[in-house]
């Protein structure tokens, strides 16, 4: 490692000059974007400063309990996000619960596997490794799971007649919902497949860029990135499959009926 250029808060302010310029343009051109632009920029600033403080404290404390607590908070936020991104949701506790559980299980398993297997920090749960890794895994799984569930629920609600037509021909609930399941899995898998295909050609991944900027040898950074991408792909796949089939199971019953009464109406 060759070390890295330390940034001061003045450097950060300097970097924001062009964003402020955008806000000025927005005001003078009357684009009406000023408010949301400034609000989201400020929100990001506050969030990241806070996260920096919290991570520093957790790294310093080096406590398993605090690490797990931070991971739990991340899962809760991701679960809320998955819930919010669905147009139609499972009713009751299933709504927020299913997506959260799928992410917790898939993301947790893959993160533990990554830590205990290839990365092996000491201790294995070392927050400096565990939390960023879990965050990346969770973020990607969240995108996949929310797309998968949203697509599945829309496909079933709009395709009720098609599903029931197959049920009426004596097919099982799994056979009758196969077209909807296929659609859901495809849309859940698309982002991770696209990002794998474009990585390195169109964009350098953020993590790799960060490592290179902080002085890590590019080939080492690439190895880390590959490792992460494989873990992300694995976790997204597990999460999307688990959430989709669990939701299908919930939206049908043992008498092979389609149970749209367990799905909420369209949210506007």
């Amino acid at each position: 490692m060759t070390g890295y250029q330390v940034l001061s808060y003045w450097d950060i302010l300097a970097a924001s000059v062009f964003l402020i310029l955008n806000a000025v343009f927005s005001i003078s051109l009357n684009l009406g974007l000023t408010r949301s632009l400034i609000v989201s920029a400020l929100r990001m600033t506050v969030q990241l400063l806070l996260v920096g403080l919290i991570l520093k404290a957790i790294f310093f404390a080096g406590s398993l309990l605090w690490t797990l607590l931070a991971a739990a908070v991340m899962v809760a936020f991701a679960g809320r996000e998955v819930w919010a991104r669905q147009n139609r949701r499972l009713k009751g506790l299933w709504g927020p619960g299913l997506g959260t559980a799928a992410m917790l299980i898939a993301g947790g398993l893959i993160t533990l596997y990554g830590l205990a297997g290839p990365i092996r920090p000491d201790p294995v749960w070392s927050p400096q490794y565990a939390l960023p890794l879990f965050g990346m895994v969770l973020g990607n799984t969240m995108t996949g799971v929310s797309l998968g569930l949203d697509t599945l629920h829309t496909a079933l609600a709009k395709g009720r007649r098609e599903v029931e037509a197959q049920l009426l021909l004596g097919r099982t609930r799994w056979e009758a919902t196969r077209p909807a399941a296929r659609q859901a899995l495809r849309s859940g898998f698309t982002p991770i497949i696209n990002s794998m295909a474009a990585t390195g050609v169109v964009s350098l991944p953020g993590m790799m860029t960060g490592q290179i900027l902080s002085g890590v040898d590019p080939q080492q950074a690439v190895k880390y990135q590959l490792l992460i991408m494989f873990l992300l792909g694995g976790s997204t796949g597990l999460g999307v499959l688990g959430a989709t089939f669990c939701s299908l199971w919930r939206l049908t019953d043992t008498r092979h009926r389609l149970r749209l009464d367990r799905l909420s109406g369209e949210t506007t």
């Binding site: 395709g159 098609e162 021909l169 004596g170 043992t254």
Partner: peptide, 20 residues
Amino acid sequence: YPAPLWRKKIAYVPAESGWW
């Protein structure tokens, strides 16, 4: 009866059928 078998014995054709 398992539900799929029941629906084969008691066939129901709705007013508007689905085509998948």
